[in-house]
Design a protein around this nucleic acid. Structure first.
Lengths: 374, 374
DNA sequence: AGAAACTCCGAAACCGGTTTCGGCAATGGA
DNA sequence: TCCATTGCCGAAACCGGTTTCGGAGTTTCT
């Protein structure tokens, strides 16, 4: 019986080596070993390395919960993803998680994931996770321009780091992909192809990136020496359908755009839909550029020119930055920016018509669409 | 100073109520309270309800780590997602996580997520997570036909539950979407439209679902009274590009298919690509059906007919099943199946040509493609 | 040389729980 | 009425760590 119990124990914990085992092997007390491993100043250098060597050799890994109960730190980063309808199946998540967990496991940390249905739910979940010591802080994905999570976490003094740059990000820790430069580059690319009427379809201005991308678009126009035309700017589209409506509005203008720049690939789907329905040739009669580099972009025909975001890299960076901040508690803000890679596609080309030729063409196509419907 | 420290403590733990607080309020010992809450038989019914009432009233929530250190259970389900290249940006993950975390939080559990690069890495990570009491068991997504994870977890006696049905699933706990019936329905749909040459492009036979979907396809043919033609079955495609190759092979047959059934939406992208390059009209000259109901399917033009899988529901079911199994340790296997919803799209229609007309059409298109290239 | 200061480690309390053990009071049977 | 159960709870050990406190031994200073 006793052997059985012992086997049971061993199989369950697989001979995990505890700090007591370690201390006995070294003829030291638990306390001393603990202090040695945690860098207390009252341990001699010689015993410290002795302890560290033995820990290494015996494969000692402290049990993070056991530590947590005294220290309050569970060594796990929290991620609460909010599932608003139009955002639900964002493919970015998988890669982002990969990056996060990679950074986490490299430091012996864990990633705790939760989801929420709405904003207040998110705040409640975050508070609970921290109170239950299930997360030491949070990564905030898809930051809003004025994000209630930030105010909340600041108030509760819970550590966090943003993926994105909200309105007041000067004093904040963040990591972001500089989509504004991508938008600027996209305008430059289109202008280089000969486009002069370049429209912009942006997404909800609640998102922080919306503001940056619009700025990038405007900066690109400025650089190209093109005057910004208010009627060519459409913001607030949340879905392909809304982007499709915006596209119809744009194409019905007296001087329609020959190129449309979309803040996301998903919005570009709406542009394609309208073009396909009307029989407008994408890549020649209408150029389109998206942003995200998502699989959707590759599923479109012709392939959508877009900017590929390395979400795995982003996750890895955010994870590493966060852990570093918690570790060395004094670390001030850390900020970092990367840029997305342009992925050309068949969706851009020299404009085959001038804007007013396109306007006349549109009249013809619309008439045909109308007669088709009847 | 003392006030400061106290404030600090309170702000960090926000007045968390411990079992000691509770026991003092009740004039009982910690031990008694603990046993009352955990349903030990040596506690009188009256004190049990008294304790439970007080716990409720004072908002007592046991600290799961503190429990874990003695019991070994951390009340968290583990999910290790393996990031093979072609599988990386699966959009299913977000919804799946939503379901899992929803089920978990309902029971006060947590979801711990890790990622791995390859198979042996996965096993190592799973073992570490269990040894470190960071996961009580695992949900296995995208189960393989012969899955090394299953053998491993069985051997290590670590609890798990499959999303999918592997080769020997009779004795196993699983949840799955019955994609085989969807494939059968797809064939029926196509046959109903008048198709007689219906091809199938399957993905890697390593995946468990591959076998089931092929069986479903064959069952559908049988029901429709169509003889299965080996040359119309292509398996092992991992990417749109490989599906594109398969499509070219199929279309070059003496009697090409007028409809192609794909095991996944992603594979259908390859079919579209070839059709677009050749100028073959999808929906009339060639019908296509996919599976998954992913955003990709909606980005294609015409919209890809597909089967929408409710991954959130799947996650919720898996989470609930798993927790129930751990809780009532004796529970035998639990198994459940749901079916996907057919989403019609413009990608199917009555065949505008017979197979041999299509063959002649193909010769013309291929010649044109060749001359276009030169 | 003696006192003061400093180094370094052991002893023990503690964190928030769980679980074993033993004993007191009430009950039941003879 | 007395003894053996049984029901119910307190006491205390335990889990795997961290942290405080104090003291023994060594160094430094005068």
């Amino acid at each position: 019986m006793r052997t059985d119990t012992k086997m049971d124990r061993r199989s369950r914990d697989n001979a995990r080596v505890t700090i007591t085992d370690l201390s006995q092997a070294l003829s030291l007390t638990k306390g001393t070993v603990s202090r040695a491993l945690n860098g207390y100043p009252d341990i001699s250098e010689t015993t410290r390395v002795r302890v560290e060597r033995a820990a290494q050799a015996m494969g000692y890994r402290p049990l993070s919960h056991a530590q947590a109960i005294k220290t309050g730190r569970s060594c796990s980063l929290g991620l609460v993803v909010e599932l608003s309808e139009h955002d639900a199946h964002r493919p970015f998540l998988a890669e982002f998680l990969a990056g996060l967990t990679q950074a986490a496991s490299k430091e012996g940390w864990t990633l705790t994931v939760a989801t929420s249905e709405n904003e207040s739910d998110t705040l409640k979940i975050m508070r609970d996770l921290v109170q239950d010591h299930k997360a030491d802080g949070f990564i905030l994905p898809r930051v809003l321009w004025q994000d209630p999570r930030i105010a909340f976490l600041d108030r509760e003094e819970i550590p966090f780091i943003c993926y994105g740059r909200p309105k007041d990000h000067k004093e904040m820790s963040y990591f972001d992909v500089a989509s504004e430069t991508s938008m600027r580059d996209a305008v430059a690319w289109l202008a280089g192809l000969g486009h002069t009427r370049i429209a912009y379809i942006g997404s909800s201005t609640h998102y922080a990136y919306s503001h940056l991308r619009r700025e990038g678009y405007l900066a690109g126009l400025l650089e190209a020496g093109i005057d910004a035309a208010p009627e060519l700017i459409s913001e607030g589209a949340l879905s392909p359908d809304e982007a499709a409506q915006a596209t119809r509005r744009l194409l019905a203008l007296e001087l329609p755009p020959t190129a449309i720049l979309c803040a996301t690939d998903t919005l570009a789907r709406g542009v394609y839909e309208v073009a396909n329905v009307l029989g407008l040739k994408i890549g020649s009669e209408l150029s389109v550029i998206g942003y995200d580099g998502s699989p959707e972009a590759q599923a479109m025909w012709p392939r959508l020119a877009s900017f590929a975001v390395d979400n795995r890299k982003a996750g890895a960076a955010l994870g590493a930055m966060f852990i570093a901040r918690i570790r060395d508690a004094g670390v001030p803000v850390t900020q970092d920016l990367i840029t997305a890679d342009f992925q050309p596609g068949g969706s851009t080309g020299r404009p085959s018509m001038t804007p007013d030729q396109l306007a006349r063409h549109m009249v013809r196509l619309s008439a045909q669409e109308l007669s088709d419907q009847i």
